[in-house]
Simulated scan of single mutants.
Amino acid sequence: MRDRIYIQPIGFAPGPQHEDGDAVRLAGGMVYAHRFAVLLRRDGANIQRWLTSPEGIANVLGQLPDEVGAEAEAQWSNLRMAHPPLALGERTIRLDQPQIMGILNVTPDSFSDGGRYHGDEQVARSHAAAMLEAGAALLDIGGESTRPGAKPVWEGEEIERVLPAVAHAVQMGGAVSIDTRRAGVMAAALDAGAAIVNDVSALRSDPQSLELVAQRECPVVLMHAPGKGDDLHADARYDDVLLDVFDWLKERRDAAIKGGVARERIILDPGIGFGKSLAENLALLNALPLFHALGQPLVLGASRKRMIGALSNEAPADDRLGGSLTLALAGMNAGVQLLRVHDVRETVQARNVWRGLRDAALTDFAHLPD
């Protein structure tokens, strides 16, 4: 018999004063949570669910089996954890507000841009400059498509694709993450000035990647994907997609820590669109705040994903701006720290307006007279 516990924020407020202080600042960001579901699961079956506010959380946690007591306390602490800024050489990225991570795919078969930035360094460089000028805090550069059915790329070719783009972005003063699952590409990009590793296989594809990331002491994004081989979309079977992804990310986080990666350098991504149906993607997006209970900053990569087309008369990838902004705002409302997007200028504008509303909400509450 095995018990598991999950604490999910389910009710939110513009500010703590709207709940007479009975709300917590979620993950140190600009979102306040005042209602939580505490779920006890035993051997894959949901046993009991409590609903509580911060004022009642101690009473609920006191009713839990001893086996999950420490984990419940850790999750409650994680939900209120303020994450320190990412120190990336000369660049610092604050995590107390949403930050925009611009996508630069230098591949001939990218689902989102049709290979527009592959094979022409000047075009790729201009696009990188435009994203940085528009307000991207970070550029995520990748040289291998991970869409369903994409063919694997030889490591040497992947390096040849990404290095010029990494060098140009660094030269322009941008912070860079390298989107790869190969240790050789990671090493080459880090040597060229990249500061973060973004591995869609969560350091599983290459047996040398975990050791490399630990030795380089760089931040790493661990993304959920069910596949173990070249096809990361394969082997997708879930009893409960939300809780299964949560448990999987927890296991990968702990494996990275055991392998020598400092916990404060681990970032998690639920892997929207990777081996998940439309219904499963929607379930994850609706419950994103749960993942703060893992105690790590979060990345959301939902920009231009196929689910948007599925909900909008099969709109093609280059005609999914509205849906992409909607999902980015969903991420902001969930307290996600890093939004990985194609349309940087538009998302930055949406973020700035969202942030203005959040700031104003802290001071515009009307009090009744004493």
Rank of each mutant, 00 (worst) to 15 (best):
R2G: 13
I5R: 06
I5L: 08
I10C: 15
P14Y: 05
P16R: 12
D20L: 14
G21R: 15
D22N: 15
A23Y: 14
A23F: 11
H34I: 12
R35T: 15
V38Q: 13
V38Y: 12
L39Q: 07
D43F: 09
G44W: 13
A45W: 11
R49W: 11
S53A: 15
I57Y: 13
I57A: 14
P65L: 08
E67L: 10
A70C: 14
A70L: 14
A70G: 14
E71S: 10
E71H: 12
E73V: 13
Q75Y: 11
S77K: 12
N78T: 05
M81S: 07
P84Y: 07
L88E: 06
R91A: 10
L95G: 05
D96A: 01
D96Y: 03
D96P: 06
Q97D: 08
G102R: 04
I103R: 01
L104K: 02
N105W: 09
S112P: 06
Y117K: 01
D120Q: 06
V123L: 02
S126M: 10
A130M: 09
G135R: 07
G135M: 04
A136C: 09
E144S: 07
K151S: 04
E158N: 01
E158A: 01
E158H: 00
V162A: 01
V162S: 02
V162Y: 00
V162T: 00
A167I: 00
H168D: 00
Q171A: 11
M172W: 00
G173T: 01
A175E: 02
A175M: 00
D179Q: 03
R181F: 03
R181V: 00
G184E: 13
A188M: 02
L190S: 05
G193A: 03
V197P: 01
V200E: 10
L203F: 14
R204T: 14
S209Y: 10
L212F: 03
Q215Y: 03
E217V: 05
E217T: 01
C218A: 12
M223V: 02
P226M: 02
D230Q: 07
H233T: 06
D247F: 08
D247M: 04
W248K: 01
E251N: 07
D254A: 06
D254G: 04
K258A: 15
A262V: 07
R265F: 02
R265Y: 05
F274E: 01
A279L: 10
A279S: 13
A279T: 12
E280C: 10
N281W: 07
A287T: 10
L288H: 08
H292Q: 03
H292L: 06
Q296K: 02
Q296V: 03
R306D: 09
M307L: 15
I308N: 01
G309V: 11
E314Y: 03
A315H: 11
D319C: 15
L321Q: 07
G323S: 05
L327T: 15
M332Y: 14
Q337C: 01
Q337I: 10
L339K: 08
V341N: 09
H342K: 10
V348S: 09
Q349C: 11
V353T: 13
G356Y: 03
L357S: 00
A360N: 03
A361S: 09
D364F: 06
H367G: 08
